[in-house]
Structures are given as structure tokens and as C-alpha cells.
């Protein structure tokens, strides 16, 4: 299919940039660009400004590698949190997801990915080297490894475990089991099997 050339080079450039975004093809990019145009200059400038400051003003937290506006992110700067627990996650979205549960009051450590040689990602591309030192220095007693339940997630979790196992701390992993509100009949066999193997005392299942 021949790509239709656009009537303006400026439009062409904007479309080219938008189409680099995940999930956005050329057609969607044209639709977005035209929408921005139609909304008028104020809308476009505000959008551009927000992207500009996103690119220039956000930093990465030096401690946990979360997104931050200062050298230390809001979570790491919050001294009321539980300094004995660190939760290791793949990326920033996972921090948000766990924060939304309200169940975790410790600190985070964002790896920035998982080990995936097929995608060219090795351990040296992750923020894992600084983790043992951080654990030792901060008086952490437990590291919770909260990585995806995929082959890559498991491999990375195992790698993190190996880097920490010499330390006198507890290393735990997320429980895997039947989802809340799910019928057993429709639970997949692997998960249900895991739930049976890792069953919990009934009293624990009552906690909400």
C-alpha cells in the first residue's frame, strides 16, 4: 500500500512523530494530528508544553528508579513508610498498581525491565546491581519480589534472589492463585494447581 503524502511538511513531521508511539499506526497518527490542529493553537501548545516538561523536568529517583521530579521520589522521601520492606517491581506501572492496592507501605525498587536476551535485555540493563547494597544499608528485613508470572519474570526473580540470598533477610514472592470473584471451574489448571499446593490456613483466608 502506498503511503499517501500529506499536504504539509509540518503535518507530515507531526504524523511521523506520533506514529512512533506504541499502538499508534499512521492512520491513527493522522487522525490525532488533525484533531490537534482542529482544536486550535491553545490546545496544541498546552500539549506540546506538557510533553516538553515531561522530557526535560522528570528525573529518575536515585534510590528506587521510580519517576520523580527531584533526585529522590515522593515515596522514597516519605519517612512514615516502612523501611524494613522493599518491593522489587519491573517498571513504574507496577508501582502504581501496588500503590493502588493500599496494602503495601514499604519502599520500592524499580528494575526497569526483565531479563530477556531475545529482546536484547540483559541484567546489566536493569537496576539490580545497586539493590544488595541498598538492602544492607537501609536496614531492610524483607524483599518482596513482585515480578510478572512469565518465563522472563521468573528468570529475573531468580536472578534477584541469587543476588540477595547471602543477606540475612527474608525474600518473598507474590502469592499466585485463584482470582477474587473467579469460579473455580473457569480458573486455569496451572493457577488452580498452584493454589492447591500453596493453600493457606483458613484463618488467613478470612483476612481482607
Amino acid at each position: 500500500m502506498n503511503e499517501q503524502s500529506l499536504p504539509s511538511r509540518t503535518l507530515e513531521r507531526a504524523v511521523g512523530e506520533l506514529a512512533k508511539l506504541p499502538g499508534i499506526g499512521r492512520k491513527s497518527a493522522i487522525r490525532l494530528a488533525l484533531h490537534i490542529l482542529a482544536k486550535g493553537p491553545e490546545f496544541g501548545l498546552s500539549l506540546a508544553e506538557s510533553i516538553h516538561s515531561l522530557a526535560t523536568e522528570t528525573k529518575q529517583c536515585q534510590r528506587c528508579h521510580n519517576i520523580s521530579e527531584s533526585d529522590i521520589c515522593q515515596i522514597c522521601a516519605d519517612e512514615r513508610r516502612d523501611s524494613t520492606r522493599i518491593c522489587v517491581v519491573e517498571d513504574v506501572r507496577d508501582v502504581l498498581a501496588i500503590e493502588n492496592t493500599g496494602q503495601f507501605k514499604g519502599y520500592y525498587h524499580v528494575l526497569g525491565g526483565v531479563i530477556n536476551p531475545m529482546a536484547g535485555v540483559g541484567p546489566q540493563d536493569l537496576y539490580v546491581a545497586d539493590l544488595p547494597e541498598r538492602v544492607e544499608k537501609t536496614g531492610c528485613e524483607e524483599v518482596i519480589v513482585a515480578l510478572p508470572a512469565t518465563a522472563e519474570g521468573d528468570t529475573t526473580a531468580f536472578y534477584v534472589y541469587k543476588k540477595l540470598k547471602h543477606l540475612p533477610i527474608t525474600i518473598s514472592a507474590l502469592a499466585r492463585g485463584v482470582a477474587i470473584g473467579e469460579e473455580l471451574e473457569y480458573a486455569d489448571e496451572i493457577t488452580l494447581g498452584r493454589s492447591i499446593l500453596n493453600r493457606v490456613p483458613f484463618e488467613n483466608s478470612l483476612k481482607i
Binding site: I115, P117, M118, G122, A151, E152, T155, F158, K162
Partner: peptide, 25 residues
């Protein structure tokens, strides 16, 4: 995991450094 291990063997060969702890992993 096999695919990943093979990818790592190739990657390590290109970059010229192999980390044995990754293969052990």
C-alpha cells in the same frame, strides 16, 4: 527458556563477554 538461553549464547558471542552466572541461571 531454551529460546532465551540460545539468544543469550548468541548475544554473548557478539558482545564478546559471557556472564557464566546468566547461563547458570
Amino acid at each position: 527458556l531454551l529460546q532465551q538461553r540460545n539468544a543469550y549464547l548468541k548475544e554473548a558471542d557478539t558482545s564478546g563477554r559471557v556472564q557464566h552466572d546468566i547461563l547458570t541461571l
